[in-house]
Structure formats: C-alpha cells, structure tokens
Nucleic acid binder design. Structure first.
Lengths: 122, 122
DNA sequence: CCTAGTACTCTAGAATGTCAAGTGCTCTGC
DNA sequence: GCAGAGCACTTGACATTCTAGAGTACTAGG
C-alpha cells in the first residue's frame, strides 16, 4: 500500500487500523457486551450495514473480533471480542479519560441508561 | 451530519476525531518533539500536504496543536502540541502497548534510527 | 543562474464510505 | 394464513474524503 522507508512498526500499523472509520466505535460497543449485527449497528449509531460488515470481517480476520453464528435461519449471529480485542480496553479507556478532561466543545447531557459509568464528574 | 438519538457524548466525539485519517500519526510524531510542516510530513510518512494542512488547521482550531510562525520569509513554522495535545500521550501509549502485545502479523525489524525516541519500553 | 529547501494551495482523479433497496426466512398478531 | 417486523447481510449508484503532483513565492548555497 505504502512503500515508506519507514518500514514496519507495529505501532504505525495499529494506528492505521484503529484509525479506520468505525473501528473504535465498534470495539467500544463490543466491550460492553456481545451484540448481534443489527443490534451492533444501532449501538454504534450511524454506521451503514455495508461498512459494518466490511469492518467486522476485517476485525475477525485480524483476530480481534469473534463471530459466532448461533443459527442460520432465522439468522442469529453473535459478535464478541477476542482476547486481543478485550485488550483494546486500555485504548478506549485512555480515550475516555482524555475525552472527559480535554474534549473541546464537550456537550454534556443527561444519560441515565446508556452509560451508567462515568460522567460522575462534578 | 448524523441525527442519532445517541445525542452527544464527549467520548463518541473524541473517537470521531481520533479516527480521522492521520490524526493519531500526527500526534505521535508531535509527541516526540515539535516539527516544521515538511518535516512533519516526512515524520508521519505518506500523508500528502493538502491533507496534512487540513488536519493541522483542524487540530489547531480544537486547541490540540499550536502553530507558531517563526518567520514568514524564508518560511519557518513550528507545530507543537498544547496541553490537551500532550494529554493524548495516554492514548498513544495505550496503542503502543497494545500494538507490541497483540498486533497481528507484527513484523519486527531492527529499528535503531527512526524510532529511537519513542516512548520506548517504559 | 541553478538547485534545494521552506510552507503551503490547487485540480483532477482514485479510494473510501454511504444510502436505499433487496434477499430468504421466521416469528407475532389477527 | 397473511401482513408486518425482525434477523444478517449483499448489491449498485452515489457522495465524501484523500491522494498525486505540480505550482507559488522566496532565500541560501554553489
């Protein structure tokens, strides 16, 4: 893809991966609990199904997400994180920490149900 | 752009920001030390100047990057991280930690010159 | 003068992501 | 049993985003 003299540094590659659209959102949703396809689509919010399918396939190939087909008809699939995926918790966590402290134009709103966690701030 | 019922959560917005192409690479380079424009372009590797200029302007607007024009002619500009920018160190760090442990197809190579600085192994 | 360097901007085109609809089937309600 | 909603996706046309590569205006070194 890119013939940089930079050669390969796993960190560079990881950034390239995490920087793809929706990847972090997907991981964040999946960290809470496993989801079905449409359910995940709703949880992530605003992603379209083609992109979501592509991302999930990629993440599965990379061993970050585990796809389990529970039944073909009626269709029921479960997506969950593998060990590597769960390890991304640290990254999402760091982003959350940064977001609550430094995110510009941070609009707060009462979120009682969705994210019981944080927001305790103040 | 998207009218989610998700409303606004600073974390969601932060992910949207960090997920834009090159943002994390730029921050990583800038964490090492301030750079000039072309220098940064080379450090990041593979980004084209229009995109880089656009990102830097955005990051400056968000108060993450500080742009200092040291001289107009000959041109000399310095880009460095603000407080908020430096705080992203935690995120980059988490990514580096994850990368070294879980990055699939991790190709190691002798990196003596390029990445000497890096947060290195702790 | 010529080359190399600085910081960018511009235009066309390639890559990437999106929208809306469709597929095949089952389950709920009536 | 039939309409309507749900599941997990796929497909094809379209929009947005990113890229390549040249160009601008100028200085320093040879």
């Amino acid at each position: 893809m890119r013939g940089d003299p930079h050669a390969f540094c796993p960190v560079y590659d990881s950034i390239d991966l995490l920087q793809e659209k929706w990847v972090l959102h997907i991981v964040r949703s999946l960290l809470e609990r496993p989801h079905g396809f449409n359910e995940l689509s709703r949880a992530v919010g605003g992603v379209n199904t083609s992109t979501l399918a592509a991302r999930l396939e990629q993440l599965e190939r990379l061993g970050i997400v585990l796809k389990t087909v529970e039944s073909v008809m009626p269709p029921k699939t479960r997506y969950e994180l593998t060990d590597s995926g769960v390890a991304l918790h640290g990254v999402v966590d760091a982003i959350e920490a940064w977001a609550r402290t430094h995110m510009p134009r941070c609009r707060e709103h009462a979120e009682g149900a969705t994210d019981g966690a944080g927001v305790a701030t103040a």
